[in-house]
Design a protein around this nucleic acid. Structure first.
Lengths: 248, 248
DNA sequence: CATCCTCATTGATCCCGATCAAAGACAGCG
DNA sequence: CGCTGTCTTTGATCGGGATCAATGAGGATG
């Protein structure tokens, strides 16, 4: 669980080239940003070291990661704590300093990230409103996803949560908008459970039941084929129970 | 549930004066912003009309409001749907256009709000980085609260959720950091339940049990006196708050 | 004041998902 | 290959909170 940081002067061009969306990469401010980023390569399971001195933005270049809240001291189920969000390449993630709130970013697969201290980021980004706007938009998207997740945790059944999880993963990972699609889950059942407020046993049972219902197929631990995305979305959205159609 | 909008040309000075934090109010951009805001007075229970044409930022001048997600079509328990957040004066709330996501802002008490179309807001705010920065900070705060709430909904008991709710309301509404404090809840038991993923019965039972435990006193429907804030925080699970200094 | 209506409290019962327990599946490695 | 540890699946039981049902408490209005 050690953390390896590459210096700002790292010359990995492939990383540098993908730091910002294409449209934002050609300004003086963008160049300045690329210079202050801390580039890091995280191995699967590694946590990004939270900088106690300051809040940061972390940009994901490649791989996948989870943002986790620390488990309560009492709880020792072996997990890493509540998973607040999963993140993929292109995501810009606000990570507060540990003092204010100890959320950690943990790699689900080997991945490359860039961390920007928010203060210096702002100082530079102020020279390029397009970048500020982009960051704000990213944050609003994150807020939107967070609220959507809250809605689920609030009053959705296990079945609904799993169905919605699968659909939203499909939306983020495969660009196909077809009726069926194949996804490879980079996270464990435990991660899924901790992000949805369910136990691994319940997650597993729901996968089984969705398979029995003909909505998904699974191969190995992480390959899932969604056989009927609209139907899954339906399950995620409405039905408060499974088969029974009671309250019209 | 109608909505009354005041024109941009409205001359209510008290409203204008409080639109932005003192420190941001003295720039050309700030003046321009004040001019494009749509000022509205909402009566208790009224919803802010979502503008189908564009996303907006809504700033609360006075009163209190809740941000709600629409209830699932099937569910008809009489509620307004999942409460995503409560908001108070000084909060800047991103509200997406109904087409993308039908979240509505509903007044808990009579309240005054100002709505800014995000596009025009950005165009103007780009001239004043301090304002952009302030909006971004607000959004990050909202994201942080949303994640904190998610953590609760994820795996906290009814007791813990209610205790945390009371403590966080105390933090936001009373500036006292004393052991005891008095708060007046502008929201109903139903609102509380819908924001915490609990039923009104459970909320009521938890209030009763906290009263029996000597942690709170209640008078009428909305007056609550917290008799031992630290103890309540303890009950809540003492996760992300100040006291604990663990990892170095 | 009496009436109406919404909101809040209390009680009884039920069910979904947590918990406890054990047996597979899969990967890494000698 | 067999061994080992982790992850996943399946089964059995239990409990917290939802649900159903009824009563009580405010708050408005005439």
């Amino acid at each position: 669980m050690a953390t390896r940081m590459l210096s700002s002067g790292d010359t990995d061009r492939t990383a540098h080239c993908a730091v910002l969306p294409e449209s934002l990469r050609h300004s003086a401010a963008a160049s300045a940003l690329l210079a202050i980023g801390d580039y890091a390569q995280l191995a699967k399971g590694e946590a990004l070291a939270g900088d106690p001195a300051q809040d940061r933005f972390v940009y994901i270049l490649s791989g996948a990661a989870k943002l986790v809240a620390p488990p309560c001291p009492s709880d020792e189920s072996g997990g890493t704590g509540q998973v607040l969000a999963f993140h993929f390449p292109g995501d810009m993630i606000p990570v507060l300093r540990p003092r204010d709130c100890d959320f950690r970013l943990i790699a689900l697969t080997d991945c490359q990230v860039v961390a920007f201290p928010t203060d210096r980021f702002f100082d530079i980004a102020e020279g390029d409103p397009a970048i500020l706007r982009w960051v704000l938009t990213s944050s609003l998207q994150a807020l939107h996803r967070s609220r959507h997740r809250m809605m689920q945790l609030g009053h959705k059944s296990a079945r609904q949560r799993i169905a919605d999880f699968l659909v939203s993963m499909a939306e983020r990972m495969s660009d196909a908008r077809s009726r069926t699609c194949r996804i490879i889950l980079p996270m464990s059942r435990r991660d899924i459970g901790e992000s949805l407020g369910l136990t691994i046993e319940t997650v597993s049972r729901q996968f089984t039941e969705l398979r029995d219902a003909g909505l998904i197929e699974t191969r190995g631990r992480s390959h899932v084929r969604l056989l009927d995305v609209p139907a899954l979305a339906q399950v995620a959205g409405q039905t408060c129970h499974l088969g029974s159609v009671q309250h019209i």
